[in-house]
Design a protein around this nucleic acid. Structure first.
Lengths: 141, 141
DNA sequence: TCTAAACCCGATAAATTTAGTCGGATATAG
DNA sequence: CTATATCCGACTAAATTTATCGGGTTTAGA
């Protein structure tokens, strides 16, 4: 089953929530998770990952929290999801398209043609789609 | 991490292998797996699933095996992968787009916009792409 | 200076999914 | 009759995802 994990979903929601903060004021993990059932400690891990990758910045101590480190127009969904999910569609032919010999299957590179199509499609679908676009679409709805 | 599982990969390779069988002669599981490291018992499960869903048909007993139950031009990759993988991108907003109330996040439907884009893109990328197309592309390469 | 609010972070545990294994039943060509 | 194959449910193992925990550090404000 191919699906987006909780890290992707929680993470995207977190980033979106931060984008809605008045004047980019920091929000605490608790505020980000709000009334959701997402465990704070788990959300924390996701946010630390986002910080390490330059998407958010944090201020420690009382009144601290997280805020966006980039402008929404500079956050595209493909890169963001790659950070959150680890990697998207890591299916590669082990033989670089050279099918003279094979490991997994004599027709391994046939499958690769399909994975490439999918990967490319995903990249096109959200590689240019920014957080700002999402905000706009969300408000339009 | 979003990825295609072995069921998707092994299954696609199996179907492709069957398409290469001279005169659609049945191939045994052993022949399908060929010199690969795929466990026969595991491949068997995949093939049984494909049979139950009308993609292949089997003849039992000596000299038996599996063969394609449809013409390659009638097998599209999106449906095939859905059968093999169980489901592709089963991420749905729990509130049908009505965000007045929320469960997972106040902004749950924002994420949905992104998942929809991805799902749609995948559907477009391989929903019209048939096994015959794959065979052609494979031979072209 | 003290305290409460917050982030930091590595380690571990629980839950779920994926991947693989097994054993015996049934069918068929030769 | 026998060897070759599919059929199929149940079970096990491995990997990944989803948390949980505990102690540490930082900072605003009293």
């Amino acid at each position: 089953m191919i699906r987006v994990s909780t890290k992707g979903r929680y993470g995207l929601n977190a980033v979106f929530a931060l984008s809605q903060s008045e004047g980019n004021q920091p929000l605490s993990i608790k505020q980000i998770a709000d009334g959701t059932s997402v465990p704070l400690n788990y959300m924390e891990q996701i946010l630390i990952n986002l910080r390490k990758n330059g998407y958010v910045e944090s201020t420690r101590g009382a009144k601290g929290g997280y805020s966006l480190a980039k402008e929404p127009k500079d956050i595209n969904m493909y890169d963001l999801l790659n950070i959150l999910e680890g990697e998207i569609f890591p299916v590669h032919c082990k033989h670089g398209g050279n099918c003279a010999n094979h490991g997994e299957s004599p027709h391994c590179c046939a499958g690769e043609i399909v994975w490439d199509r999918i990967n490319k499609a995903v990249k096109e679908a959200v590689g240019d789609y920014t957080l700002q676009d999402l905000i706009d679409d969300f408000n339009k709805k």
